[in-house]
């Protein structure tokens, strides 16, 4: 075999920007909303609980300011998480898996399939109701380089899982 060592033009390399990222399932928005509502109502409930526990004047007098402050924060973070939903996207290429997320801090993580140690598909109780699952991809790296793609259609997750598993096994 003749050995060739052609120069690589960086422009010719496969570009992540050209990849059409798929949005995750719309139903996951419901899960985000439900989780969010449960969490915020817990916080607000705890606040009301404090109102009955703490009888001191400064707290009682300013209670409603505090309440609306917290409520405002909750609404803000709720809107943010709804908006950020659109940013949750993923793609599987022949040699890697890409996952993008985040509104305020947007990140695009790519894990080469050859570096994947194992894949796991997990479904919470709520997710099962909506026919969704989470795909967890583990690498050998620190916790930082593991991926977990939430809110995939169950079948989709399964097929990606199978694809990656076969690739990972094939490499060995």
């Amino acid at each position: 075999m003749a050995f060739t060592n052609p120069q690589i033009q960086t422009e010719d390399l496969p570009n992540v920007e050209d990849v059409v990222l798929k949005p995750i399932s719309k139903s996951y928005l419901k899960i985000i909303a439900l989780n969010g509502l449960a969490f915020y109502s817990l916080i607000l409930g705890a606040l009301f609980g404090l109102k009955y526990l703490i009888k001191e004047a400064p707290f009682q007098n300013n209670f409603w300011y505090l309440f609306f402050g917290v409520l405002g924060l909750c609404i803000f973070s709720f809107i943010m998480s709804i908006l950020a939903f659109k940013k949750r996207k993923y793609a599987v290429r022949g040699y890697d898996v890409i996952y993008a997320k985040g509104l305020i801090v947007h990140s695009v993580v790519t894990v080469p399939i050859s570096r994947i140690q194992h894949v796991e598909e997990s479904r919470s109780w709520l997710a099962r109701h909506f026919g969704l699952s989470t795909l967890k991809i583990f690498t050998a790296g620190e916790a930082g380089s593991d991926l977990s793609i939430r809110g995939l259609q169950h079948l989709e997750a399964k097929s990606i899982n199978d694809f990656i598993s076969s690739q990972v096994d094939g490499n060995k």
Binding site: V16, I104, V105, H106, S107, V108, V109, T110, V111, P112, R115, T139, A140, G141, G144, S145, L147
Partner: peptide, 8 residues
């Protein structure tokens, strides 16, 4: 092991 692009 993995590469990540980050942008605020």
């Amino acid at each position: 092991q993995s590469v990540k692009l980050k942008q605020t």
